[in-house]
Structures are given as C-alpha cells and as structure tokens.
C-alpha cells in the first residue's frame, strides 16, 4: 500500500512539535489537542506496538532479534492498517545485519526529516538528558555508533534506535532513494511557520485550507505546549529533564557554548551545517 510516513529527526529537532501540529491539523477544532493523547502518530520503536502485532512478548528478544523483525513488521502494518500511518523515529536511515532497510521502500509513502542547528540541538539535548556538561553531549553527537534505548539489563519500552552521530543521521536520510523525503529546518518552522507547515501538508498530500493550517499552527504554538506541560506534565518527558518544552529558541548554542565547544561541533559537523545554511 505504501502508506507509512516517517517523521524522522535527530533528537530535539522539532519532531514532537511536528506530531502535535499534525494532530491539530487532522483533528481540527478551535481547541488545541491534548499533548498527552496524540492519536495520529505512533512511536516507530514502541514494543507495545510490536507485542500487539506479534502476539507474544517482544521484550524477550535481544535488540538484534528485534532489529531483524522491524522491516517485516512495518511492511505488515502497512498492509493491514487502514489509512496513512505516521511514525516518529530518531533512527538514522539504516539497515539490519542482513542488509534490509529498517524503513522499507515498499511500505513507505514518504518521510519528513527535521533538521536543526547542532549548536542549538546540543543545548536542548543536554537539558533533555539532564546533563549540565555540554561536552558529554558534544561527544555523543559525534559518536558514529550512538544508540538510544540500548540497555539490556532493565525493562525497555522502545526498541534500540541507532541514531549514529548528528551528521550521519542527516546524511543517512539524504541518501534515501526509494521514497520522497522532505527536509525541513527547525529554524524555518520557527521563523516562518505558515510556509514551513504548508510544505508539510503539500508533501503529505493533505488538502487543508490556509485557515486550517494557521489554526493548527496556533494550536501547536510553543506557548500552548508549555502551558499544557505546566498544567498536566508531558508523558514523553524523560525523568532527568525538568521540562520537555523548555525554550525552543534558536541561537542558544552560540550564546551558551564556549568557543572551543562551538569549534568542536563545527569541526565534527561543519560539512552538513554548511549544506543546510548553518555556517
């Protein structure tokens, strides 16, 4: 059917914001959607999702065994579920040990890849992880083997996600040939939201009026997300993070990182930064 849309990004690049925008767009009302009850998008690595489809406890599998299942599960979901399915992922566009793409062409309608200045990602990601040490995040963003949810000694809710380095994450999605990928800068979503989110709607083939898109943007404003989080918290907030929707501002990297830290990020990721207008 080719009905899956991947909402892909390196962490802290606007993925949750995009999901909330889509929720507000698809379930359009005057009232903002509940950020703790998003119905239009799913976590691509959710073990609950895999359990439901397999009929047995997937957490009894090793990470490698789960990896081997993923392409086939997505293809199965594509064939069984109705309508377009939106799946969030932080994974790089990568392959199983036997060379199968985690995100199969035959199941995929399209992808949207969100990219954000890595200097700002560094600040936001450090707060998200509860780190006060930016150097630790800078090292993680440069780690070509970086993974999320790779613990093996405790319960895990999501399958291991190979996010790789910041640059490799971007490059991997740039290499996709089997389905259309829209690259969208966080900064453009922030500075010119109507134009950016209209591109999203157009890429997805979603026919919505200017009024509907503007209302969805308004209902997804950072102030609205912060308000909801302060009232009811946000279930995707990690334990060590004080706030999920913390600042959302552009340019914080230059303001808060030392010269050597900025230089380090540029040394690691300068090529991709230049490609996307960050240098």
């Amino acid at each position: 059917m080719k009905s899956i849309v991947w909402l892909a990004s390196y962490p802290k690049s606007g993925n949750t914001w995009l999901r909330i925008f889509l929720e507000n767009l698809f379930f359009a009302t005057d009232e903002p959607c509940d950020i703790n009850n998003l119905r239009s998008s799913f976590m691509s690595c959710s073990l609950d999702l895999f359990d439901h489809e397999c009929g047995w406890d997937v957490s009894l599998l090793s990470h490698d065994e789960i990896d081997r299942l993923r392409p086939e599960i997505y293809t199965y979901i594509d064939s069984q579920w109705e309508n377009v399915k939106y799946f969030k992922t932080h994974c790089a566009y990568s392959f199983t040990g036997s060379g199968e793409a985690f995100f199969p062409d035959e199941a995929t309608k399209a992808a949207i890849y969100l990219i954000r200045n890595p200097l700002d990602v560094c600040i936001s990601y450090a707060h998200h992880r509860g780190y006060s040490d930016y150097d630790r995040i800078i090292a993680e963003m440069a780690d070509a083997a970086s993974c999320l949810c790779s613990d093996t000694d405790q319960p895990f809710w999501q399958a291991r996600q190979k996010i790789l380095s910041w640059s490799l994450n971007v490059e991997s999605w740039l290499s996709v040939e089997g389905f259309p990928v829209l690259f969208l800068r966080y900064e453009d979503m922030k500075n010119n939201p109507y134009e950016a989110f209209s591109r999203v709607a157009a890429h997805l083939g979603v026919n919505k009026s200017e009024l509907e898109i503007r209302q969805a943007i308004k209902n997804s404003s950072f102030e609205e997300l912060q308000k909801q989080e302060s009232l009811n918290s946000f279930k995707e907030k990690p334990s060590r993070s004080k706030k999920f929707f913390r600042s959302g501002q552009n340019g914080m990297g230059y303001a808060m990182l030392s010269r050597s830290q900025v230089a380090s990020i540029i040394a690691n990721h300068g090529q991709i930064m230049a490609q996307f207008g960050y240098l």
């Binding site: 439901h52 489809e53 397999c54 009929g55 081997r68 299942l69 599960i73």
Partner: peptide, 17 residues
C-alpha cells in the same frame, strides 16, 4: 496477526528463530 493465527480451539504462534 503478524506472527499468530487464531481459530476456534486452536492457535499457532511463531517466534522467529
């Protein structure tokens, strides 16, 4: 399902590997 088939009185489960 992706790895099961249930019918009245019987059910087949397949766990890869």
């Amino acid at each position: 399902g992706f790895r099961f088939h249930a019918k009245p009185n019987e059910l087949l489960i397949c766990v890869d590997g």
